[in-house]
Design a protein around this nucleic acid. Structure first.
Length: 307
DNA sequence: AACGGAACCAACCGCCATCTG
DNA sequence: GCAGATGGCGGTTGGTTCCGT
């Protein structure tokens, strides 16, 4: 039997014959799958499906487990910190969802992909520009991402001025939320940010143009040393290969992106003291305002001669 | 309250890479 | 080296929920 969906699509008789089930999973199926994996482990999904008494393809079982049933799957709204990370990592790697998901503990590639297609592409649509266009990338870099940083700051400052995080070495350390904005040069959201006056230290390494083979960014736009940190991506093969100067989150996250998933999760859970609830609610409350603000800023941004 | 459009998200599809015999 | 099986990934779809009118 062909495990690729094509066979099912092209041969309905076979599908009928095998009596394979499609569509939403039932609680009973979930239980069977989770129970079987708990006992026998995962892998060999086709035989697993049969042994567990499921009328599902192996691929379907795998997907259900990875995206939904796995105990470490993190559910709920994408937090501000996660949004920032997604924007940054996507600017670097493009639609490499599984790779991006490696840096968001508990988040699946599917979830990140959905977030991108709904939230991010929605903004691009509103701006009437392509999500891969230079205009949109610049908007993300100069408006959206600093805005996110600031909102993270605001949320943090309103609760506590410092947090405890766990490093990859399982050592506790504190970081100062007030330094986050400084890390990205964000002073005040009311300050209109332009390429000319921006002191953003969004690393040129993270430049949104890089992944899509656009020309090098205008050095005027950066306060840092462009030539020093602008380099091609192809040598980076995984999380462990991230350069130290890659989008300087050291002040933001209190550690670099080479930290373990577990320590990242610790940070996400500690940033607002009570899990992600604060930042989640912040996002929920501010979402409409965010859209309005976003469009407003973009409008001003577009009026600049150099853009 | 009813309706329609937008947004969300779980699940599927199709392709490719790797594994295994 | 080859063919089939399996796993993984990005793109897409369609059902459900949300929200404005």
């Amino acid at each position: 039997m062909d495990e690729k969906g094509r066979s099912f699509k092209n041969n309905n008789n076979m599908e009928d014959e095998m009596d394979l089930k499609r569509g939403p999973w039932t609680a009973e199926e979930d239980f069977k799958l989770a129970n079987h994996i708990a006992t026998h482990g995962e892998g060999r999904w086709n035989s697993l499906s049969r042994c567990a008494g499921l009328q599902r393809t192996g691929k379907s079982c795998r997907l259900r487990w990875l995206n939904y049933l796995r105990p470490d799957v993190r559910r709920g709204n994408i937090t501000l910190e996660e949004q920032l990370l997604i924007l940054e990592l996507h600017s670097r790697w493009g639609n490499r969802w599984s790779k991006i998901a490696q840096y968001l503990p508990g988040r699946t590639d599917n979830e990140i992909k959905n977030y991108w297609r709904t939230r991010v592409q929605k903004h691009a649509k509103q701006l009437k520009c392509d999500v891969n266009s230079q205009q949109f990338k610049d908007t993300m870099k100069y408006i959206w991402m600093p805005r996110l940083v600031e909102r993270i700051q605001s949320a943090s400052v309103s609760t506590t001025t410092s947090s405890c995080i766990t490093t990859s070495n399982n050592q506790s350390m504190t970081y100062d939320h007030n330094s986050m904005g400084q890390q990205l040069g964000v002073v005040n959201s009311n300050d209109y940010i332009t390429p000319e006056n921006s002191s953003l230290t969004v690393s040129p390494v993270s430049d949104l143009t890089e992944y899509h083979s656009a020309p090098k960014p205008n050095p005027e736009y950066y306060s840092g040393q462009v030539g020093d940190s602008y380099y091609p991506d192809q040598n980076l093969v995984g999380p462990e290969m991230l350069p130290d100067n890659y989008f300087d989150y050291s002040g933001l996250l209190g550690e670099d992106l080479t930290a373990t998933h577990e320590s990242n999760l610790d940070w996400f859970e500690n940033i607002d003291g009570v899990g992600s609830s604060s930042s989640d609610s912040l996002w929920n409350i501010g979402e409409k305002d965010e859209d309005f603000w976003f469009l407003q800023q973009q409008e001003q941004f577009n009026n600049y001669d150099n853009f």
